[in-house]
Design a binder for these strands. Structure first.
Lengths: 324, 324
DNA sequence: TACATACATGGAAGCGCTTCCACCGCAATA
DNA sequence: TATTGCGGTGGAAGCGCTTCCATGTATGTA
């Protein structure tokens, strides 16, 4: 009803179904004559191969699933995630595999396993997974799963080198004379932030500064709150480093509302180098990372399935603008 | 190899395939005993139904495709698109239908038709389509297609009311004493901008101002360029309205580089009310629209398939901040 | 005890497609 | 003329699943 089947095409072209299939897929021999007649029938009937039936017999899983973990609104609003999706979709398109997008709740570990188990999956790229969630993925399937963020021994991960990235930013703050540096982290369930906090701690330790960490969640709103908290708790703070540009922008806002001058009174630095970082006033000092490279590597890892590497970290580069 | 089949489950449970299927789908009678044994077998073998095979026989198309038209990097970088995707994915998830994401090139009209023709499609939401592209969609399928942006008589569309939205912003500029107002449009292939330009023209006409339109493309980079162009061409310009916040932010940047004071010398207004609009310095005056409502309505339209409405426009509301 | 009724179950068909295999005719070779 | 090789073709199997239908097997009623 909905559409013509291969049988209809074969009948219309006066050939067998096998021949019609060969012509449509281009997978076997066929005389130019036959080819033309089948093509004509296809055009006339508006034939479109049934993806399900084809997948059933070819057993080819030509779909790249991208799972984004965490609360959706905040997460997709995040330009970082957008860049990941765009790139992964590109890599997939180049290989003619479809892309499916999935929002997985943070607190339903089973959801990732269910997704991974879907047959006919070419690969699965998980954005910002937790390690327990990754562990729910059946062992046999781990070869076709890659993580952007934290990984496991079985699941290769691709991520920014938060440690040296943070180190670079915080050191820059120290170099420019700041000593009372506070840090706004990411959501606690995102383990990738741990390395960043550690790097921050280390720098503060080496320069004798006090460790001042407040929790964040990668949103601008939280940044504004955090700024107020920080200034209330440690009034002598002269720099704030946020592990997300969005949050840093929020900090800028919060500080502005407080009447604090940036960078005069307090320097502010972010992390990610989103498109807006250069547009804020003052323009945000931050650290830029090769998100596209990371996403591409992850997509390739599951689609081309070479040898499995453990965890790959990509360098982040300090971008000095006005805010610090 | 990859996974157990229903036959394996049936064998393991000592029942027929038909019975196993009934238990798994929950679609027929089965004794508690049998049920338990099949369940055990499923658990032990890690059985997961093959989606392709199931789709083949049930003929159920449970997938919502979201096609985004236009150059990908710029488009997904756009927070607007991100909000649309998030919402549509939510609506789909609530109905337990999968989501697939597609980047369609601007100049390949056939690509949309091919996507729409895919069997087993629950619905298709097209973001920012062109009318010609929509016309390539086979008539029989149009009932399950909705557009966000421009539509056709056969394809319902959901969009912001650019006309009154623009009217509101430009009138605000006039009210606050601006007379030499320039406008930066969206990409020329996006017809939704036409109504906005028309509204702008009308306001300028009614207040005797000169019409100053320069092309934009919804990016910040273009906004910065456009600002320079505008000030070079019409040095007495005292306000700039950009049909995208991203572009307006770029205008802010370009003006700043030129040493022009905002809003002192030139007022700037945007459109969309993205998250950053309130964070820029000066905070951006813009117009906010119910993107989530729009995306939800579009997704619902194709998924729930009620009566087809023509085109629905959602009101946009002026948000006055510092820049104008 | 004989019957209808309900429920549980297995057999088998078939969804639309790809692909192995056998076949047929034709040209090239012996 | 008999043989080989090969491109083109159709028959048929089968991918994993759902579901109609027929066949039992326990229950309730006459």
């Amino acid at each position: 009803m909905t559409g013509a089947t291969l049988d209809d095409v074969a009948r219309a072209a006066g050939v067998s179904r096998a021949t019609a299939s060969r012509v449509v897929t281009g997978h076997g021999p066929a005389s130019p004559q036959t080819r033309a007649r089948v093509a004509a029938a296809v055009a006339e009937l508006g034939y479109v191969p049934d993806a399900a039936a084809r997948a059933l017999v070819t057993r080819t899983g030509t779909r790249l699933a991208i799972a984004v973990i965490g609360h959706t609104a905040a997460v997709l609003g995040d330009p970082y995630v957008g860049r990941v999706l765009t790139t992964a979709a590109h890599v997939a398109a180049a290989r003619e595999v479809g892309v499916s997008l999935h929002w997985l709740p943070l607190n339903d570990p089973g959801s990732l396993a269910r997704l991974a188990e879907t047959r006919g999956l070419g690969g699965l790229v998980v954005v910002n997974p937790t390690r327990p969630a990754l562990d729910t993925v059946p062992r046999s399937l781990r070869g076709r799963v890659a993580a952007i963020g934290v990984g496991t021994p079985d699941v290769p991960s691709f991520d920014v080198d938060n440690r040296t990235g943070t180190d670079g930013v915080v050191r820059h703050l120290v170099t420019t004379g700041r000593r009372h540096i506070a840090m706004v982290t990411g959501p606690s369930w995102l383990p990738c932030g741990d390395r960043a906090v550690e790097a921050y701690r280390r720098v503060m330790h080496s320069c004798g500064g006090e460790v001042r960490v407040v929790p964040g969640n990668f949103t601008a709103a939280r940044g504004a709150e955090a700024a107020v908290e920080i200034m209330a708790r440690w009034p002598d703070t002269d720099a704030v480093f946020a592990l997300s540009d969005l949050t840093a922008l929020g900090v800028l806002d919060g500080l502005h509302a407080l009447g604090v001058q940036v960078p005069g009174d307090v320097a502010v630095a972010g992390f990610d180098d989103i498109a807006f970082a250069g547009l804020s006033r003052p323009a945000l000092t931050t650290s830029t990372h090769p998100v596209e490279d990371i996403a591409e590597a992850a997509a390739r890892a599951v689609l081309d399935r070479g040898r499995v590497q453990r965890a790959t970290f990509y360098p982040s580069r300090l971008v000095v603008r006005e805010s610090a």
